[in-house]
Amino acid sequence: MKPVIEIHNITKTYHVGEIDVHALNGVDLTVGAGEFVAVMGASGSGKSTLMNLIGCLDEPTSGEYDLDGVRVSSLSRDAYADIRNQKIGFVFQGFNLLPRTSALENVELPLFYDRQKRISDPRKAAQEALERMGLDDRMDHEPNQLSGGQQQRVALARALVNQPSILLADEPTGNLDSRTSVDVMSVFQELNDQGMTILLVTHEKDISHYTRRIVEMKDGRILNDTPVRSRLIAREVLESLKGVEECCN
């Protein structure tokens, strides 16, 4: 299994006034291609910081980070931007779609900043990404005309349109009701089944059970790193939910 992420002894220290806050205290983590990892922990455990470092949104204070075999822990700001553009797809809790901008244009956004022009027809690529998410008839809708689940699917389409090496999701179900959460998780599982490497940050235990591996964090360190034994299959859960609805209505 080829490693996508290799992190060795990484630390991150924030300076808040006179006080140093050690958000990460020497973390080692390796994620192979095709893995589906949930990073869990209470707020303040350092899981979001880890996520930001992996996503090249932030630089580590010390330690090494290789992404796709490339040492990225000592690159320039512009190089970080290019890595975010080429190798990483983000999904956020608050969806983070551009307001008053159509779903199609939102999905096109990463291709807009693609300097290498890997994709010759951005519009077509964006349409296909939205179709994959089952949003064929919602392309011209603006975010405020879409439901939470639909917005998260648009965000997923945007994250996938530039064919990233890894999909990073920060509390992707945090703003969704439980039924829609399962729905979104089924999309993640489908993508993972197709070979996409996914790293998901969550504090919901049941959500983590849709993944294949759980990394638990506490006080800037990794506490446990265990494979998921009784994995939930989102599609089956959806079926059973439908069954419950049918019986009770």
Binding site: R77, D78, A81, F90, N96, L109, Y113
Partner: peptide
């Protein structure tokens, strides 16, 4: 600011 953050997260450089 948020829009700028979103653009940066999908790969916009400072110069963009």
């Amino acid at each position: 600011t948020r829009e700028i953050g979103i653009r940066m997260s999908v790969g916009a450089r400072g110069s963009d």
